[in-house]
Amino acid sequence: KTVEVNGVKYDFDNPEQAREMAERIAKSLGLQVRLEGDTFKIE
């Protein structure tokens, strides 16, 4: 899975870890996480 923030992509081998990281980043920035294919987009 991939986490994308402001056009910057971070790859994770563990999908659960990617989801947790995406949620943590989104919460700290006051944004939403949206799953698009294999990418968690933070917008």
Rank of each mutant, 00 (worst) to 15 (best):
D38K: 03
V3M: 02
M21P: 00
S28L: 14
V5A: 03
Q17C: 15
E23T: 07
E43M: 11
Q32T: 14
N6I: 06
A18E: 00
A22E: 00
I25P: 00
E36T: 05
F40D: 04
R24P: 00
N6C: 15
L31C: 15
V33E: 01
E4Y: 10
E43N: 07
Y10K: 04
S28A: 14
V8D: 05
P15I: 12
D13R: 06
Q17T: 09
Q32H: 12
Y10L: 10
L31Y: 10
E23C: 15
K27M: 09
I42F: 10
E23F: 12
T39H: 06
R19T: 01
Q32Y: 08
L29S: 05
K1C: 15
P15Q: 11
V8T: 09
E4H: 06
D13K: 09
T39Q: 04
A18C: 13
V3E: 00
N14T: 14
A18R: 02
K41T: 07
K41W: 13
L29Y: 05
D38T: 07
Q32S: 13
V5L: 11
R19S: 04
T39E: 07
I42N: 03
K41N: 04
F12M: 04
G30M: 03
Y10R: 06
V33R: 00
E4F: 11
K27Y: 06
E20F: 06
K1G: 08
N6R: 07
M21R: 04
E4C: 15
T39M: 09
K41P: 05
L29F: 06
E43P: 02
Y10Q: 03
A18Q: 01
A22V: 07
G7M: 04
E23M: 11
T39K: 06
T39P: 00
V3L: 05
N14I: 07
N6H: 12
A18D: 01
A22D: 01
N6W: 13
R34G: 04
G7L: 02
F12C: 15
G30W: 01
R24E: 07
G37C: 15
P15F: 14
E43C: 15
K41V: 15
D13S: 11
E43V: 14
F12W: 04
L35R: 06
S28K: 14
G30T: 00
E36N: 05
A22M: 03
E4Q: 11
N14D: 13
Q32P: 09
E16H: 10
K9V: 11
D13V: 10
F12I: 04
K9C: 15
F40R: 05
I42P: 05
P15H: 13
E16T: 12
E16V: 12
D11A: 14
T2K: 12
E4A: 06
G30Y: 00
V33C: 15
F40Q: 04
D11V: 15
K41Q: 08
E4K: 05
K1H: 14
A22Q: 00
T39V: 13
N14H: 08
E43L: 12
K1V: 12
G37L: 03
R34C: 15
G30N: 07
Q17G: 06
R19Y: 10
V33A: 05
V5W: 14
S28Y: 14
K27C: 15
T2L: 07
A18F: 06
V3I: 10
Y10N: 01
A22G: 02
M21H: 08
I42T: 05
R19M: 07
G30R: 03
N6E: 07
E20P: 00
D11S: 14
P15N: 08
R24S: 10
T2I: 13
K9G: 04
G7A: 02
T39G: 08
F40V: 08
E20Q: 13
P15V: 11
I42G: 02
E20D: 09
R24A: 11
D38Q: 04
V33Q: 00
A22Y: 02
D38N: 10
Q32F: 09
T2N: 07
I25A: 04
V5D: 03
K41D: 05
N6T: 03
V3N: 00
V5Q: 00
N14K: 08
G7N: 05
F12Q: 02
S28G: 07
Q17E: 13
G37W: 02
R19A: 07
S28F: 13
Q17V: 10
I42S: 03
P15W: 12
I25G: 00
T39Y: 06
L29P: 01
T39D: 05
E16C: 15
E23D: 11
D13Y: 06
E20R: 14
E43F: 13
Y10T: 07
V33G: 01
M21K: 03
R24W: 11
E4M: 13
L29T: 05
E43T: 11
R34V: 12
V33S: 03
F40I: 13
Q17H: 10
E4D: 08
L31A: 13
E36D: 13
E43Y: 13
M21S: 04
V3S: 01
E23Y: 13
L29H: 09
V8Y: 10
R34M: 08
R34T: 12
T2C: 15
R34H: 10
I42C: 15
R34P: 01
T2V: 12
P15G: 08
Y10G: 01
A26D: 00
I42V: 14
N14Q: 08
A18I: 05
V3D: 01
D38E: 08
D38W: 01
E43G: 13
F40T: 06
E20L: 11
D13E: 12
V33T: 03
M21D: 00
I25M: 09
D13N: 09
G30E: 04
I42E: 05
V5F: 14
Q32W: 03
L29Q: 05
F12L: 04
K1A: 13
I42Y: 02
L35C: 15
M21Y: 14
G7D: 03
K1T: 13
T39L: 07
K1Q: 06
Q17N: 09
G37M: 03
Q17I: 12
L31S: 07
L31N: 01
K27T: 10
K27Q: 11
I25S: 02
N14A: 07
T39R: 06
D38V: 01
R34L: 08
R24T: 08
A18Y: 02
V3H: 02
V5G: 01
L35T: 06
I42L: 11
E20M: 12
I42R: 00
Q17R: 11
A18N: 01
T2D: 03
E16L: 11
K9Y: 07
N6S: 06
N6M: 14
E23A: 08
R24H: 08
S28M: 14
A26H: 01
Q32A: 12
T2E: 04
D11E: 14
A26W: 03
V8W: 09
E4T: 09
E20H: 10
E43W: 08
F12Y: 09
E4L: 13
D38I: 03
V3R: 02
A18T: 01
F12H: 02
P15D: 08
T2G: 05
L29W: 03
D11G: 10
V3C: 13
L31M: 13
Q32V: 14
E36A: 07
A18V: 03
P15C: 15
K27P: 00
M21I: 10
G37S: 02
Q17F: 08
I42M: 05
E16N: 10
V8N: 07
Q17L: 13
P15E: 13
Q17P: 02
L31R: 05
Q32I: 14
V33F: 08
R24G: 05
S28P: 00
N6A: 09
L29M: 12
M21G: 01
V8G: 03
A22W: 05
K9L: 10
K9T: 09
I25Q: 01
E4V: 13
K27R: 12
K9E: 05
R34D: 04
N14P: 06
L35Q: 09
V5P: 01
T39W: 05
E36I: 12
L35D: 03
V8A: 07
A26E: 00
T39F: 05
T2H: 14
F40L: 14
E20C: 15
A26C: 14
E16G: 09
R24C: 15
F40N: 05
I25D: 01
R19K: 12
I25W: 14
M21W: 15
E20T: 11
V8Q: 11
Y10A: 03
L31H: 09
G37Q: 03
G37K: 06
E23S: 08
K1Y: 15
E36K: 04
I25H: 02
E23V: 10
M21V: 13
E16P: 02
D13I: 09
K9F: 10
Y10V: 07
R24I: 10
G30C: 15
K1S: 11
R34W: 08
V3K: 01
V8F: 10
V3T: 00
E4G: 01
S28W: 14
K9H: 07
V5K: 03
M21Q: 07
K1E: 02
V5T: 02
R19G: 02
K41L: 14
N6P: 01
N14S: 13
A22C: 09
I25E: 02
G37D: 11
G30V: 00
E36P: 02
E4W: 13
V3P: 01
A18W: 06
V8R: 12
K27N: 11
F12N: 00
P15T: 12
D11Y: 15
V33H: 01
Y10H: 08
D11R: 14
